[in-house]
Design a protein around this nucleic acid. Structure first.
Length: 416
RNA sequence: GGAGAGGUGGCUGAGUGGUCGAAAGCACAGGUUUGCUAAACCUGCGUACCUUAAUCGGGUACCGAGGGUUCGAAUCCCUCCCUCUCCGCCA
């Protein structure tokens, strides 16, 4: 949500932003509606003031009662108009995208993202490296077939050593974030519409959401929803900022309309798992916090030894709530290219405004906080481990930092 | 799932139809007194929106949410939501 006052003061700025982001909101119509709304508000409030004034006379003056009764009807009619207009404005407002940072590259899709830097040495194989789904099947550690049998295509099992690897990865990442000042949570895995709206998933990604029948509940698409929603309607004390929160959770996405797209393996699935970083901070700190989360993401991949590149995500590849976004694309030798494993978004006050998350500064002023939402690790990182550390015999070496947690340093065929 | 109690400002807690946006206390802010601290005393202190040059002032709305009765509702009526206690079930 953007501040409607920006639309009042500088409609051209909003219009231009919508044009650049390809938002289908009729900004001019919205602006006109808002102007009409302001006039109507004044009319209604004046009428109510008059009604209230007359009401006070009624105690002693019986004849005033008839006048108030008349006025009441007129007020009711105007109030209905006002409320309709308000609803219509709110609907339009809900679809307005966030503003963009100056250094967001223009572009249509992920092809146009701009690589900022590379890290790590791509492994040099003397054999044809396998993809994670081939490895997973061969080692019996990823089971998509039974996932489909039990749930649906798009669900899967991590099995045996694979489940141990994934668990170790998620636990390790959480511990590392705690060391870096994050407070760890386990959150609800369902949230109500208000929470999804507030975090900007609705209305923009409605078709990605699993809703629960007959309930005002949906399965979370990420713990970002529950971690940011945690502070809805709250005023945070200035000295507590920044707040750094982390959580591990399953993430549910319908992936409607994406069949056939990167569908091999467990890259695009209905349920994945993620350790998430969330920061609430003062507006002036959000660029630095965005970088700080980025550093955390890169630190984790470096500790694991996975080669990657960082891209500055272009306009077309960024969701409407985002102000600026970095993705990390890990090197996947079996796939033969870089693939997105994490992303990191500065949402500025877009979510905070929708959810009413504010802070009180030392002088008593209240302002909306800024939020940063950044991945730490996901299943995709486990896939990257598999592809990068595979051996010619089909076994996979476990990264050093995870060995004390997995209890083994190599995953291999049980009968090999 | 069964039975009962309750939702008022940052907190505690008055308030059953009309100067109630709401007593009082706590907390908080400013001031007086004072070697320092503490105490005491005085003053101030909800939120959102509209208006305004203005965080002067004015207006509207808000006492869980939404409807209704009435000239007038925190107070009466209806529906819903939530919280708590006891019982049952249960990881």
């Amino acid at each position: 949500m953007i501040d409607i006052r920006i639309l009042r003061d500088d409609p051209e700025r909003v219009r231009e932003n919508c044009r650049r982001r390809g938002a289908h909101v009729d900004v001019d119509a919205l602006h006109k509606k808002d102007q009409a709304y302001l006039i109507l508000v004044r009319e209604v409030e004046d009428m109510r003031a008059e009604r209230n004034r007359l009401s006070k006379l009624c105690k002693d003056d019986i004849s005033a009662r008839e006048k108030v009764r008349e006025l009441k009807k007129e007020v009711a009619a105007k109030e209905a108009q006002l409320s309709d207009l308000r609803t219509s404005i709110d609907q339009d407002l809900a679809w307005l995208p966030n503003f963009l940072a100056d250094d967001v590259p223009s572009g249509e899709d992920d092809e146009d993202n701009v690589a900022l830097r590379h890290w790590g040495q791509k492994p040099d194989f003397s054999f044809d490296p396998r993809s994670h789904d081939q490895l997973g099947e061969k080692l019996g550690i990823i089971d998509t077939e039974r996932g489909a049998k039990v749930a649906q295509s798009g669900f899967y099992y991590w099995a045996g050593a694979g489940a141990q690897l994934a668990s170790a990865l998620f636990f390790w990442a959480q511990q590392e974030l705690v060391k870096r000042g994050f407070q760890l949570f386990m959150t609800p895995c369902a949230a109500k519409e208000r929470t999804l709206f507030g975090t900007g998933y609705l209305p923009f990604f409605e078709d990605q959401t699993y809703t629960i029948a007959d309930e005002d509940l949906a399965l979370i698409g990420t713990s970002e929803q529950t971690l940011v929603g945690y502070h809805a309607d709250e005023i945070i004390t200035d000295v507590d900022l920044p707040l750094r929160y982390a959580a591990y959770s399953p993430c549910f996405r319908t992936e409607a309309g994406s069949y056939g797209k990167e569908s091999r393996g467990i890259f695009r699935v209905h349920q994945f798992h993620k350790v998430e970083q969330i920061v609430f901070c003062r507006p002036e700190d959000s660029p630095a916090m965005h970088e700080s989360c980025q550093e955390n993401e890169e630190y984790l991949l470096q500790q694991l030894g996975i080669p990657y590149r960082v891209v500055n995500v272009c306009i077309g590849d960024m969701g409407a709530p985002g102000y600026k976004k970095y993705d990390i694309e890990a090197w996947f030798p079996g796939y033969g290219g870089y693939r997105e494993v994490t992303s990191n978004t500065n949402l500025t006050d877009f979510q905070a405004r929708r959810l009413g998350i504010r802070y009180r500064s030392e002088n008593g002023d209240k302002h909306f906080v800024h939020t940063i939402s950044a991945t730490a690790v996901t299943d995709r990182v486990a896939c990257a481990i598999m592809e990068n550390f595979q051996q010619e015999d089909g076994s996979i070496l476990v990264p050093e930092v995870l060995r004390s947690l997995t209890g083994f340093d190599r995953m291999q065929l049980r009968d090999a």
